[in-house]
C-alpha cells in the first residue's frame, strides 16, 4: 500500500465509523427540538432496531426489504409507548427530571432486551455481501454505503418533513415557542409523543443498518449513545446536518488519530478536538449559542 492509499483507507475507515455516530446522533435532535431534553434511551432504540431485525430475519426468515420496515415500526411503537407511559402523564416536568426518566427508561429497556435476546452478541448478515469495494487501493464495505444512504435519506426526509408538511411545521413551532404554539391550537403534548416516535424510528433505522457491522448485544446502546451524543453536541443540538457533519468528523479524527498518532489515544484526540470546538463555538459547529441561551436547560 502506498502512502496515498493508506491515507485514503484511514479516511474511508473514518467515514465508516463516523456514519454510525452520525446515524445515532441524528436521533437525539428531534426529541431535543421538541422538548429540550437529551433522551438517554436513544441508544436503546438503536439496539432494539438491530435486535428486532435479527429476530425477523434469522428466526422469522423474512427478507431484508420486509423485515426492515417492520423492525423500525416495532421500535416506533416502543418509543411512543415509553412516552405515553412515562412522560405524557407528567405536568410541567423539569428538564433534569425528564432526562432522569429517560435514564430509567434506558435501564428498563436494556433489562427487557436482556431477557428477550439473551446476553450474547447477535449478528446479522451484511445486506449486500461482504465483498469490499476497492477505490484507488483503499477499501470500503457495501454495508457502509447502506449506512451512508440511510443517513442521506433521513436527513433529506427530515428536511422535507419539517419544512413542507403541516405536522412538521407544527413541531418546529413547538420547538421554538411551546406557549405560542399552544395559542395557535397545536397540541404540544401530541407533538412530544410524535417526536418520540420519530426519534425512535430514526434510532431503529440506525440499529438495523449498523448491526451487520458492529454486532449487537443488549447493552451496546449506551456506548453508541455516548458517541452519538458527542456528534449531536459537536454539530449543534437540533441541527440534523450538524450531527452528520460532526459524526463524520469525529469518526475521521479517530481513524486518522489511530493511524498517524497512536491507537491508544485515538478517542482522546477526537474528544480534545470536540472540547476545543466547544470552547470556541459554545453552540457547536452549526448551532447557535444565542438560541442555546433561551433553552430551559
Amino acid at each position: 500500500m502506498d502512502a496515498l492509499a493508506i491515507t485514503l483507507q484511514y479516511v474511508f475507515t473514518g467515514v465508516a465509523i463516523g456514519s454510525i455516530y452520525a446515524m445515532v446522533g441524528l436521533g437525539f435532535n428531534i426529541i431535543y427540538n421538541c422538548t429540550g431534553i437529551i433522551n438517554f434511551a436513544q441508544g436503546e432504540f438503536v439496539m432494539l432496531g438491530g435486535m428486532f431485525m435479527v429476530t425477523l430475519t434469522t428466526v422469522w426468515k423474512l427478507p431484508v426489504g420486509i423485515a426492515f420496515p417492520i423492525a423500525v415500526l416495532l421500535v416506533v411503537l416502543v418509543g411512543i409507548g415509553f412516552e405515553r407511559i412515562a412522560i405524557h402523564p407528567l405536568k410541567n416536568p423539569s428538564v433534569l427530571v425528564l432526562i432522569m426518566i429517560t435514564i430509567a427508561g434506558s435501564i428498563l429497556i436494556k433489562g427487557l432486551a436482556m431477557f428477550a435476546w439473551g446476553k450474547e452478541a447477535r449478528y446479522l448478515p451484511h445486506f449486500s455481501g461482504e465483498t469490499p469495494i476497492n477505490i484507488m487501493g483503499a477499501t470500503i464495505l457495501p454495508q457502509t454505503l447502506w449506512v451512508l444512504a440511510s443517513l442521506l435519506t433521513v436527513v433529506v426526509g427530515l428536511a422535507y418533513f419539517f419544512n413542507r408538511t403541516l405536522i412538521g411545521k407544527a413541531m418546529r413551532a413547538c420547538a421554538h415557542n411551546p406557549d405560542a404554539a399552544r395559542l395557535v391550537g397545536i397540541s404540544v403534548k401530541q407533538m412530544v409523543t410524535l417526536s418520540f416516535g420519530l426519534s425512535s424510528g430514526i434510532g431503529a433505522i440506525a440499529g438495523v443498518v449498523i448491526t451487520p457491522i458492529i454486532l449487537m448485544d443488549y447493552q451496546r446502546g449506551a456506548m453508541l449513545a455516548l458517541k452519538g451524543f458527542g456528534a449531536a453536541i459537536l454539530g449543534g443540538l437540533g441541527s440534523a446536518p450538524g450531527a452528520v457533519l460532526a459524526g463524520l468528523l469525529i469518526g475521521i479524527l479517530e481513524s486518522l488519530g489511530a493511524g498517524y498518532i497512536s491507537s491508544h489515544y485515538k478517542d482522546a484526540i477526537a474528544l480534545i478536538v470536540l472540547l476545543g470546538v466547544l470552547f470556541v463555538r459554545p453552540g457547536g459547529l452549526l448551532g447557535s449559542a444565542d438560541v442555546q441561551r433561551l433553552k430551559k436547560f
Binding site: 475507515t13 465508516a16 479517530e254 489511530a258
Partner: peptide
C-alpha cells in the same frame, strides 16, 4: 503494537498500519 476500545466498531485503521 496496536490497541482499540472494547466497544469499538471498526479496527481497519489499526490494521492498515499493521498491513503497512
Amino acid at each position: 503494537d496496536e490497541t482499540y476500545g472494547p466497544a469499538d466498531t471498526d479496527m481497519t485503521a489499526q490494521l492498515t498500519k499493521i498491513k503497512a
